[in-house]
């Protein structure tokens, strides 16, 4: 198969970027999208040119490293799929393919297709966990958790922290990402004691990190490779309002995030 690629090249964070066009030929339909880029990169190296830098690691859809906007879609055209799980058989022979980095205020470009996603880590650091010290836990069967709750928590916990939701959102909001963690822990008895603190802290960190507000486009859920449902955002808002109501000092923070399920 043959393709014409238009790829974003940017040498460093402070420099301007631009699209460069690369033809690629004789690509097997069984190559993955990233393997197709590997082939192109080897050609570039053969010519002494710097290869295209992109984040990737597991190449099986779980580490959340890979991150490209392909023809305008974060992670490309297939639903529920990471960039590394795309295969060239998913594209038409002769197709023109545009490849760009995640674009969001909170994700500065570092080089070519690589962006800095440390802002997502900061949101988790602000409360995305249960504060249990090693050694403190009771027997695992001390508390039962209904299968429904465990399954729902799992559904939320499947987030891989890739940031496609942010890239897809016209406001660069990280609501879906944040909601996934808040909902996971709210579903489980272990997460409940810190519920209010957690949601307030994480939402505050989200705002501080430069993520935008949610205005209900739900482009995030469409782009999400793990199909984290948009309804979790409503649940996040509810958690936030409840938390704000129960702790007066946080009432001020509550205002920008009011909408109903």
């Amino acid at each position: 198969m043959d393709f014409t690629l238009h790829i974003w090249r940017q040498h460093g964070a402070a420099e301007a970027g631009r699209f460069v066009t690369y033809p690629v030929r004789g690509i097997s339909p069984d190559l993955s999208f990233l393997e197709m880029l590997d082939v192109l990169n080897e050609e570039l190296v053969g010519r002494g040119e710097a290869p295209i830098a992109f984040d990737h690691d597991c190449r099986e859809g779980i580490c959340g490293s890979c991150a490209m906007v392909i023809n305008g879609d974060p992670h490309g055209p297939l639903p529920g799929t990471t960039t590394c799980q795309l295969y060239m058989r998913h594209f038409a022979n002769g197709a023109e393919i545009t490849v760009e980095p995640w674009r969001a205020r909170a994700f500065p470009v570092l080089r070519d297709l690589i962006v800095d996603r440390a802002a997502l880590d900061r949101v988790i650091q602000a409360g995305g966990y249960v504060s249990v010290n090693t050694g403190a836990a009771p027997d695992a069967h001390a508390l039962t958790v209904s299968k429904q709750a465990a399954d729902a928590a799992f559904e939320a916990a499947a987030c891989i922290g890739c940031g496609a939701c942010v890239a897809a959102c016209p406001n660069g909001s990280a609501m879906l990402f944040t909601a996934a963690k808040v909902v996971q822990l709210a579903m489980l008895p272990q997460g409940r004691p810190e519920r209010a603190r957690r949601v307030i802290g994480m939402v505050e960190a989200m705002d501080d990190a430069g993520f935008g507000n949610c205005t209900n486009h739900y482009a995030c859920a469409e782009a999400c490779p793990k199909q984290i449902p948009a309804r979790f955002i409503a649940r996040l808002n509810r958690e936030f309002l409840n938390a704000a109501l129960t702790s007066r000092e946080f009432v001020e923070l509550a205002r920008p995030h009011e909408h109903e399920e």
Partner: peptide
């Protein structure tokens, strides 16, 4: 055994049966 106890306390959504046990 302690590992499982700790991980459950962290809110790791292990598979469970209908009675709510692991």
């Amino acid at each position: 055994n302690q590992i499982i106890d700790h991980c459950v306390a962290q809110g790791i959504p292990f598979a469970r049966d209908y009675a709510g046990y692991l």
